[in-house]
Design a protein around this nucleic acid. Structure first.
Lengths: 203, 203
DNA sequence: TACATTATGTACCGGTCATTATGGAAATCA
DNA sequence: TGATTTCCATAATGACCGGTACATAATGTA
């Protein structure tokens, strides 16, 4: 039995909204990381009890993956759109400014959920780490493909090291998330992005 | 009473070497992070029992700070030396290649201990996080001062945004550590550094 | 030899973790 | 109404967490 939008449930209907509960869970994982978020943290933020959580989402790991989907869909959509920019520089511009705007948003936690959960922690979270790294690799591959295309289009010089350029841009984005999570001011972050763009190799 | 090299200890002598035990503990914290490293992990790696650990180092947090000192002294010395480079570009070169060499070393864990422990985790590690962030800020301030000097020396253009340039370089270093910890190959890391240096604004 | 001092190993402490069994209340269907 | 289904709340489970009593062993000094 799957979760459907229009449920024709037989018994007592669910008393909470799964979407808003998932959003609340996302905030917890976002700020505390997978292992740092306890079930008590989660249930309190979601406004439901433990059994309700397990009935609705499976377990902690499954809940995390669902919040990760939500995060990618709602908070990282600018990354997908960035690839549609007409030039490689446009892609970099959209990615950097998108990351900046995301960190400027005052209502969301700071830092990047992916970055937070990609660092090594306890053994129990090994599969979580692998999952996050896999998703990060997919994003990176999208960038590689885009820059490769830019090269064939003459948008990037023929001798461009696409792997290097991608790793370079990725490192900048990761560093931005890290510094934002570490409390660097918005002004400093903006200076970071400005410097990055002034350094960008292509016009 | 302090720990002295030539101990005139009264009682039973310690059966293990505190320095090598500390090195072993460093590896554990380095790979697993503060919270991911359990006392069982630590005592097993250090080859000592729990009470011996507490007698010699205080508690887990004090042990972590000692390993952090060791890490900074032995693994991050290239950062201090980098500031002695004659030009701003030389500083960046030494920092980037130093970070690369560190990640190429096959006998050490991947990633940066500071980066790993600067992301938010459970509430118990809040002071740890603050300590790591403080040390990172000190390093960053050293870079700012160095680039400010480069500006007065005419080594950097007068209109250089030193804050932005520092945050930019710091982001690159953090991104390198993150990608190294995430399993990026040495070849890709090298390409990252090469691209970064080719982008560096000053000669 | 006797004592003070320090380190050692064993075994344990209370607390928290994620997960689940239990039981009663409430909302749907026939 | 009665049957069914899912809800919520309580609390127990076993495992692990960081941190310690405790008695014992090994050194110094006297």
């Amino acid at each position: 039995m799957e979760i459907t939008a229009c449920h024709a449930a037989k018994g007592r209907p669910r008393e909470f909204d799964t979407d808003s509960a998932l959003t609340a869970a996302l905030r917890v994982f976002w700020t505390k990381g997978y292992e740092g978020a306890s079930l008590s943290d989660l249930t309190e933020a979601m406004g439901i009890t433990r059994p309700s959580l397990y009935a609705a989402f499976g377990n902690k790991e499954a809940l995390f993956r669902k919040t990760l989907d939500l995060y990618q869909r709602e908070k990282l959509d600018y990354m997908g759109k960035a690839l549609d920019a007409p030039t490689a520089r446009g892609v970099a511009e959209r990615l950097l400014t998108g990351a900046l705007e995301m960190q400027m948003s005052s209502c969301d936690p700071k830092g990047c959920m992916g970055v937070i959960n990609s660092v090594a922690c306890g053994t129990e979270a090994e599969s979580i780490r692998a999952e996050v790294l896999k998703r990060g690799a997919t994003v990176k591959q999208g960038l590689i493909d885009r820059f490769e295309r830019a090269k064939t289009e003459g948008d990037l010089p023929a001798d461009t090291d696409v792997i290097g350029l991608t790793a370079y841009l990725t490192a900048l984005l990761q560093g931005i998330a890290l510094q934002a999570g570490g409390g660097t001011s918005c002004a400093d972050l903006k200076a970071l992005i400005d410097t990055s763009l002034s350094c960008w190799p292509s016009k």
